[in-house]
Simulated scan of single mutants.
Amino acid sequence: MSLFRNLDREALAVIIRQARTRRVKRGERLFVQGRPAAACHALLHGRVRIAQQSAEGKTVTLRFVGPGEMFGVIGVFAGGRYLADAIAAADCVEIRWSASVMTDLMRRHPQIALNVIAVLGQRFAETQDRLREVMTERVEQRIARTLLRLAKADMRGGAIVVRATQRDLGEMSGATHYTVSRALRSWQARGLVRSRRNEIELRDVTAIEKIAEDLSPPDADRAG
């Protein structure tokens, strides 16, 4: 886990003893946007959707969390409140450390503080990348990039199956549902993907990568 890299076995044993385990049913919230960030979380099993609500009440999917990933960290160390909702997209098992326990661990193991800085930097870089993509790339590129990001955590044997709805894909790529549906239909006709309810199978990853890497400027009528 990113927060505990470069720590020795003795330190890791202490950290594990301080953790608390919780089972969460699909659809339940692990934490709620705007509430005090009470803990740092790590997923052992399942899948968690991170979604943010606008002032108008619109919900936007930001990313998905898979086993071995940590989440809720930024809220604990930057502002003290959760910045988004965490919703179980499947039955989950998580471990968590209260904010006070994590602060104490950081005092005892300064490497954790360095790891927190690295996590914050990575999140900032990801946000910059997403903003740049929305501002400069064609909508098909953004959809392809989002599929490839999601695919990293969704390997099933020899196939790559992205477990996300077309709505999720649109929210994460800054595209309308209609545009996502149109792109997937086109790619499916070419044999690049197979779209099913709540999941998309990538059948030609190389072709999807070529779409994502197209650096031509966005067309006004294809901006999504």
Rank of each mutant, 00 (worst) to 15 (best):
F77E: 10
R81M: 09
Q166D: 14
G80E: 11
Q111F: 09
M155N: 08
L114M: 10
H177S: 12
R167V: 15
R132L: 12
G80A: 05
R149C: 14
D154S: 11
L105T: 00
L147H: 09
A84E: 13
R138Y: 01
T136D: 06
I117Q: 14
V161D: 02
L131T: 13
F124V: 08
A86C: 01
R123M: 08
A118Q: 14
D129G: 10
L120R: 06
G157I: 04
A175L: 07
A86M: 02
R142Q: 06
R149W: 15
W97Y: 10
D91T: 10
A89M: 04
L147G: 05
T136C: 06
G158W: 09
R149M: 15
D85F: 03
G170D: 07
D91R: 07
I143E: 08
M172E: 10
L120H: 02
F71M: 01
E69P: 02
S98I: 00
T146D: 08
I95L: 12
G66Y: 00
Q141D: 11
D168V: 07
D129S: 14
R123V: 09
R108L: 08
E171W: 00
D154F: 02
T136F: 11
V93P: 00
G80F: 05
A125Q: 13
Q111S: 12
H177P: 11
N115A: 09
G75L: 05
K152C: 04
L147T: 05
V76F: 07
A90W: 06
C92Y: 03
S98T: 14
I87F: 07
V116H: 03
F124R: 04
D168R: 03
T127L: 14
Y82R: 09
S173M: 00
L114R: 14
G75K: 10
T146L: 07
R145A: 13
A153K: 15
F124Y: 07
A88H: 08
T176C: 10
M102I: 13
Y178R: 15
R108S: 11
W97N: 10
I112F: 05
T103S: 15
A88R: 04
V161A: 08
S98Q: 05
R107H: 11
H109K: 10
R130C: 06
G174A: 01
G72K: 09
K152N: 05
P110T: 06
G158S: 14
G157A: 03
E126F: 05
A90S: 15
A86L: 02
Q128F: 04
R142C: 04
R108G: 06
L105D: 05
M106T: 11
A159N: 07
L148P: 08
A84T: 08
V162R: 13
L114C: 09
P67R: 02
A159H: 08
S100A: 15
H109W: 12
W97P: 09
K152H: 09
G158E: 15
N115Q: 12
Q111P: 06
I117W: 12
R132N: 13
E94A: 02
E140R: 12
Y178F: 13
A159K: 12
P67W: 00
P110K: 04
I143A: 12
R108I: 01
D91Y: 05
S173D: 01
G75M: 05
L105Q: 05
M70D: 12
I74K: 13
A153W: 12
R107W: 01
A151D: 02
V101F: 10
C92K: 02
N115G: 11
